[in-house]
Design a protein around this nucleic acid. Sequence first.
RNA 1: GGGCCCUUAGCUCAGGGGUUUAGAGCGCUCGCCUCACACGCGAGAGGUCGUUGGUUCAAAUCCAACAGGGCCCACCA
Length: 929
Amino acid sequence: MAETRPHLPEAPAAAPLPEAADGPYDPTAVEAKWYRFWEDGGFFHADVEAVTSGEKEPFVIPMPPPNVTGRLHMGHALQDTVQDLLIRMKRMQGFEALWIPGQDHAGIATQNVVERKLREAGQDRKEMGRETFLQHVWGWREEYGDIILQQKRRLGDSCDWRYSRFTMDEGFSRAVQEVFVRLHEQGLVYRGEYLVNWDPENQTVISNEEVDNVERPGSLWTIRYPVVDANGQDTDEALLIATTRPETIPADTAVAIHPEDERFQHLIGQRVRVPVGDRLVPVIADEAIKMDFGAGALKVTPGHSEVDWEIGKRHEIEVLSIMNLDGTLNELAGAYAGMERVAAKKQIVADLDAQGYLVKTEDYTVTTPISSRSKAVIEPLLSPQWYVSMAPLAEKALEVVNDGTVTFYPARWANEYRRWMEDIRDWPISRQLWWGHRIPVWYYTDADGEIDESREFVVSVDQPEAGMVQDEDVLDTWFSSWLWPFATLGWPDPETETEGAAMASPEALKAFYPASVLVSGYDILFFWIARMIMAGTHFTEAVPYRDVFITGMIKDKQGRWMSKSLGNGIDPLDMADQYGADAVRFTLAVLCAQGQDIKLDPAKFEGGRNFANKVWNASRVFGRYIETDRDGRPTTDAKRTRAFADLSLVERWIVTRLAETVASVDASMRSYRISEAANTVYDFLWRDFCDWYLELIKPGRDESGEFETMDAETLALAVEVFEGALKLLHPFMPFLTEELWWKQRPRHAREALIACDWPSPDPAEQDAEAVALFATVQDLVSAVRQIRAQYGVAPSKPVAVTVSVGGDSAEATAEALESVRSYIERLAGVDDLVIAPDASKPPASAAVVVDRHQVFVPLAGMIDLDAERDRLRKEIEAKRGFLASVEKKLGNENFVSRAPEAVVAKERQKRDDATAEIAALEANLADLG
RNA sequence: GGGCCCUUAGCUCAGGGGUUUAGAGCGCUCGCCUCACACGCGAGAGGUCGUUGGUUCAAAUCCAACAGGGCCCACCA
């Protein structure tokens, strides 16, 4: 759709061809200009019309929206590399590719950041009030919110920025509230007072998924609870109770033992005296108690423990809540009221000890729940919150993964997903924060403006009646993120123009939803990925995306998580400055093997840098023969005129290899084997294109040191093949490839590489025989080089070589090799080459067996006979070992009769070849005397 | 307590029933500033694919157990 782009900028001038003295490729100069060209030129734009008209298939990736407080880290760089790779590739393959960027408002994180900043300025959130505080947050977002999006541009992310959404923008907010209203109407959202994970630091509830369980050294105290008689007087008996949390003793409302515990049968139904506060509580029996833990009795504290809450429910035990929201004890804690929980714990233990109730204190490893946000110790607390019933949503979400509508890559993540979905819990969605989507619940007020509890609340996006007040709480951040793939496109109401939704329209929603792929880390599989699938199937009756590609997580060199506190983070932008964004991308792609975590050593980016440099230099070999104007723009459009059959052997070989590479890259990418695809492109360019093809076609210099010319046809083919390689490489290294692209031919701005068609090689232009013959050339060249290296023949010194051609069709092979003798001469430094079937060995020559052929290099006076004999003996020995293994196989009746014929034939071929080679080697050995 | 992953060359990792007797990058050894590239070129050394069993004509590859390492989930107070 290039034609529809209004003001195509001129392509930036290509830098003049560097001279050798210029040193290595400098990405900084090159990378700066292209992003602007692409962005200004609208190359990232996805056109709705192209899809609705049926002209193109959509390919859509919703970018995991980074937090507004976020700064680009290696995890982003990895995931963005994968996403941009897919987007650029699909775009070139003719899809209307849309990568939707945006940002997440990140409730707690952002509120904390802004609050901290205000505190530094001596201001307090609570003093300034909700409205003023929110203004500060929006101001903060104005100022810093775009930083991470700018950082993503540096990496080359080709997202359509026009589609960018913020989860707090007007339309998105309406979608969030609409979802709450709908769920309420469907009976799937409810308010309830249960034990929640309370973060006393942030003073908000958080969900189970936001709690980390950490093992910490602590103590296990054993405390005596006296059994009392009918009159409430202490008897001689007592239950010993082990606890790690004595500060909750004031909230004990029962003591429990196992129903089958012989020791305490007679106590069931009796009462004990809680040694703090002297309350009398019943002894109950419950299966959940472990007889062998501590002394076999558990204090039941339903107000402050999840397990106890469950036990309490079963036995209708009273619930006491002794803690305030800030973590201090309340008046129900009696003497300890007002104390902070840690201080209270110490004091209670000291008092129990003084009063003789403390039986013993042991060191004990306590599993402590920690808020992943504030790192504060979570307090299970009774609190009224809003919940979503998840089971009905999970059912459909499970189905679409089970029936393959959604596919996970790697597949094992589908199992993790299932496991979670099958055992899902309701989701507490209210948060006691200010920054976020206000819960759309409205209350009637009385004459004093207080909430009138006697009247039913109303759930509605807009204020239902004047004078009603809205619920103070906001919704969990993930309650907006789970709508990301469709709310970004304007769902549920794309007709209504809302701020921040420039591209939303019914057509866009229809064209670009569902998305194609989601790329994310497994750390948010449950937080986000699973919930999006639930939201998609529930609200839109569609899956949000067909494929889910789960990347590994980036760790440091030693395998530890990168964190601010460890200071072991590697900044992708530093790396981009140091090595180039292309190098960062390519390196990450190479490291992106399926699903494994990546232990990243910054030195690894050198590999990507070296490759960029290699490609850059390769272009110079033939690039110097392309005529250009003063701005470095090519002035001629050399196209090959020769038919494929008329190409030289190495040309037919490289064209075939390119075709094979395209097929291989396509296959790898189809199954998200990113690293495999990257390595395939790398090998083609470095091993095939540079090491062999360029070495053969590059002109030398004549006696006076002037470059010889390159003929137009050779140049045309080099440009053609290199362009194919640039296309393959472009999704990995967009900047470098775009730069080199413009050095090849005169082009119109719309023919930027980013907008090019993906290579689709002509099946007629592939030549398996050329590949086979060239492989022989490569082997012969290597053989000569081997001898040269072994005997220390200076690279500058030419040698004479005799190739004794063997095998079944020696005559034909010799003839074919004869036609490309110059390759061998050139690459192996040969000045006198004899190629003949069964040529005899020149005297005093070193010999190497290559397939059925032999390579002889006469080295009068240079050969160390003993060393040569040694080498030959070793080689013979190795070959014999190989032959033995093959013969063993062939001697196995079962193998011959049961293995496929082709496999057996292959083994026979191996045996025959090895036999012939051994014979040749032995002849050489004998010849040495 | 359940579940998942990893264990292959000195290091970091690919591969995942027969593709020569196992590959890459880095590191190492030897020789080269060969006029695209020393961020380079050529030639090498280096591994009984964690252990033990099994399935199979054939196992690094599939299965089981075990041993190390890591991760996730779970209410042991």
